[in-house]
Structure formats: structure tokens, C-alpha cells
Amino acid sequence: MARKPIQFRLNGKDEAVFVEEGQNLLDALRRQVGDTSPKYGCGQGTCGACTVLVDGEPRLSCLMLAESAEGASIETTAGLAGAELHPLQRAFLDGFAAQCGYCTSGMLMSAKALLDRNPSPTREQVVDAISGNICRCTGYEPIIDAILDAAARGAGRRSA
């Protein structure tokens, strides 16, 4: 099968990998680069577990062709923490926003995309921003609260 070289930045670091024709970005990140923080949930763009940021926009990496990431800047949960946890991570951790943790990476990325463009969202805006991310364990309240909490801690201003 034809393998195509692509280059992109992942969490601020240059990556170059060979991808198969038709391979999706999720698979390329997990298998070629070894970043397993984005998760395979449904493979058809309806659960949100694979959400990553591509040039700042939340994208369902299971639906995006890897080769279309050529030259893009990609962010995943694995790169969210600096020397300390990102305020979103801290708020999720303190707020019991993860139970099984499998949706958490996608939730954090959807939340970061929101706070990056809107540092002080309303509750409705938070709900809207994560409405494409399924969590099967919590009833969403701890997640919504954590995102609002992170906003209050200045998460959006920090990363903007």
C-alpha cells in the first residue's frame, strides 16, 4: 500500500511520519507517533473520545484523514500540561470529572477549544461545547462544573 510522508507539529514538537492512504489522524497519532491520549470510541465521529485540536479547532481525529494534517499544528491531552497541570486538568482532577477516564481526553480538548476562544463562557456555552462528547459514567455535572471552574481560574486567558 502506498505510504505517504507527512509532517506536522504535535504539542509544539515537529513530527514526521509515513501514513497509509486513507488512514485517519487518530490512528496515525496513536500508532505512528505513539500518542495514545486521544481514544478510539466509536470510529464514526459521534462520541468525541478522539477529539484533538487542529490549528486550534476541535476536530474528530477518527474522521480526519491523516494526510490532511500536513503542516498543521495539533494539540492533544498528552501535551496539555506544562511544568504544572493546565487549569482544566487541575479542575477535572479536583472536581471528580473523570470516572473511567476514557472520555476525558476528548472532553479536555473540547473544553480547551472553548476556553481559548471564550475565556468566560456561560454554563449553556459549556454544555454546548461538550454536547458532542459522550460520557457514560458521570451525569456530566462534574465535567461542566470543572470547565467553569477552570475558566474561573483563568484557563482561557492563560492559553490565549
Binding site: 495514545t36 498528552a78 497541570l85 473523570a98 477516564g101
Partner: peptide
């Protein structure tokens, strides 16, 4: 109300599931 033992791994994407 002690936090989940994997909470830090969950939020940093470093909690390993079988496929990881």
C-alpha cells in the same frame, strides 16, 4: 472524598487502557 487513584493519569492522558 479522596480523589480517584487514576485521576492524574486520566487528565494527562497517561492512564493506559488495553489498546494503549
Amino acid at each position: 472524598p479522596v480523589i480517584h487513584d487514576s485521576a492524574e493519569r486520566h487528565v494527562t492522558g497517561s492512564a493506559l487502557y488495553v489498546d494503549d
